[in-house]
């Protein structure tokens, strides 16, 4: 036991470790390491870095820890927006509970202790494709604040998040900003797992009503989390029956449906159909009279 433990409780490769104190220093460190062909990478919570690194699915010779950046730790209301730092742990976000839909989705990610280390930015930018914390941000048309060689950039999430956050080389996420009006909108977030009560989803759905329209975002159905205009168009077509709306929404899924040990694609479709019924009922959406 002890010998096996010795071998496996450290990463199998050596790397330079940096903990920059300013936004610019982080970028400079990245660029310098890049020029030296050190395959630099940013990280914040480091849980994915450690767990995938241990099994050789991540490699770097220069790891840049973003946790020292105070801009990434803020929880602040500013000019009608809630600004959340990307280095906040999921527990910090839940404890502050300023964005109830995000709290509700985040509370189901991993387990309580792990959420004390996993960060918002790490979850959104991770290789592990569930990225559930992005669902509320997709629904609330959040703005993503990134830092890179060209300075600070602010982009609407729909421009910059397609399956994953489309960062340029040397760029990292530092904040997300969400208009306050989304924070009190009616919402629901439901996670269905194949087994256990912690960890990865079979399917997670988050939904929100804005201006009488239903918005839904889904993780665990395809190899990426998404919000689909076509699916929402079908769900908001109140001209047809509730069953037909859901049927039409299921016909508009934007990619192949996952078929793996968590569940077959048919089973996922079945679960999603029921989830859409549950969401409409819970939010009293599309009820006649």
């Amino acid at each position: 036991m002890e010998d096996k433990g010795r071998e496996s409780v450290m990463l199998p490769f050596g790397f330079d470790y940096y903990r920059p104190k300013s936004l610019e220093e982080a970028v400079t460190r990245f660029q310098q390491a890049d020029q030296s062909l050190k395959e630099p990478m940013y990280f914040s919570g480091a849980t994915e870095f450690l767990t995938l690194g241990r099994i050789n699915q991540v490699y770097t010779e220069a790891a840049i820890d973003l946790k020292g950046l105070s801009e990434g730790k803020i929880i602040q209301f500013d000019q009608g927006y809630l600004v959340l730092g990307a280095n906040l742990t999921l527990t910090e976000i839940e404890e502050a509970n300023v964005f109830p839909l995000l709290t509700s989705t985040s509370k189901e990610i991993a387990d309580h202790t792990a959420r004390g280390k996993i960060t918002l930015g790490g979850n959104i930018c991770g290789q592990i494709f569930y990225r559930e914390a992005v669902l509320p941000l997709l629904l609330a048309d959040s703005q993503m604040v990134m830092v890179g060689p060209e300075g600070i950039k602010v982009k609407p999430i729909h421009e910059i998040f397609h399956e994953r956050l489309l960062l340029q080389r040397g760029e990292y996420l530092i904040q997300v900003a969400t208009e306050s009006r989304y924070l009190d909108a009616p919402f629901i977030s439901i996670k269905r797992r194949q087994q256990w009560e912690t960890g990865y989803p079979l399917i997670t759905i988050a939904a929100l009503i804005m201006e009488n329209k239903l918005r839904v975002a889904i993780s665990g159905l395809c190899t990426f989390p998404f919000r689909s205009k076509e699916m929402e168009g079908a769900l908001n077509n109140l001209e047809v029956s509730p069953q037909e709306r859901i049927h039409n929404a299921l016909a508009s899924i934007p990619g192949p449906i996952l078929h793996d040990v968590e569940g077959s694609s048919d089973y996922r479709l079945f679960v999603l159909e029921n989830l859409l019924v549950d969401v409409c009922e819970a939010l009293k959406f599309g009820e006649r009279e």
Binding site: V9, R19, L50, H112, T113, A114, K117
Partner: peptide
């Protein structure tokens, strides 16, 4: 003061 899985943290952190 918070629980932490020490396999998910590097000593340098």
């Amino acid at each position: 003061g918070w629980p932490m899985k020490s396999c998910l943290m590097m000593a340098v952190e």
